[in-house]
Design a protein around this nucleic acid. Structure first.
Lengths: 140, 140
DNA sequence: CCTACATTCTCCAGCGACTAGAGGAGCAAG
DNA sequence: CTTGCTCCTCTAGTCGCTGGAGAATGTAGG
């Protein structure tokens, strides 16, 4: 009984229609039942799973990691340490990326601040990219 | 005259061999002369261009933006304001991404801190992903 | 019942920026 | 001459979608 079609599922979950089909294709979302006219119908449980996926993607978990997290969710008696370590790994990635981006931010600000708005010949932005020695960034 | 083969170009520029060929294919790097045996040979100017590209990629500029920056570099009499605005746009992207990642960091830390290392049934990580209401993150 | 329109279906192609592999040719040293 | 390295081209795969074509199905009004 009941359920909603894919467009409605997209609306309530915030996941676009083709993306929902894509998640089904890659095995994140189980194949839903179809109507007589071959249309997918999503029940509550599937909509919840879809929201789980969306939320996890927003936090930057990869599809592979989400698959594992969903498997874990399906077996609630297990230890949560795999879930914990996936989240910790993700946190490490995020922190590393923030550090990297902050260094880029500093470098970009230096480049831009040094720009005297003249011609390319004296442009600090081009200069820094051309001549590595002028770059304050140590890691490259 | 002369120059170095692609492997050496890769070594000195820090760009991998297939990536150098890729840059040639997409028109970032002009086609270098070849030896009798059809091998690419890179002179100083090309190596400098390659390093420019690598540096720009490390700062996260897209290939399209780099193409523009290279064009500008080739015409040093022009105003540097396009270069400046590309860099400024990039800076905005970087800052926005940092903000986003910081919010993720907070959320992940909350998830992990709340994990009592029991079973999935009581796992805070899974719980937050499942039940959106427990998420402190306002933007999703 | 007919028509118009919206929604959904499947399949296939493309994005960006590479990366990997097959299968072959060139080249330098022992 | 053979070994082993580098290089060549070409194709296809990666990730996570996104878009389009062309057909079928569902719904609301007349």
């Amino acid at each position: 009984m009941s359920g909603v079609p894919i467009g409605e599922a997209a609306r309530v979950s915030g996941v676009k229609v083709p993306t929902i089909r894509y998640y089904e294709e890659v095995g994140l979302l189980p194949e839903p039942p179809r109507t007589a006219g071959n249309r997918r119908f999503y029940d509550e449980a599937r909509l919840r799973r879809l929201t789980f996926i969306r939320h996890a993607r927003e936090l930057g978990f990869e599809v592979g990691a989400i698959r594992t997290l969903l498997d874990l969710q399906d077996n609630p008696g297990q230890s949560c340490s795999p879930a914990d370590s996936i989240a910790r790994q993700r946190l490490l990635d995020v922190v590393a990326r923030i550090d990297r981006l902050k260094a880029l931010q500093t470098e970009l600000e230096r480049m831009i601040a040094g720009c005297s708005h003249g011609t390319i010949a004296t442009c600090r932005v081009i200069e820094v990219l051309t001549d590595h020695g002028r770059c304050a960034h140590p890691s490259h």
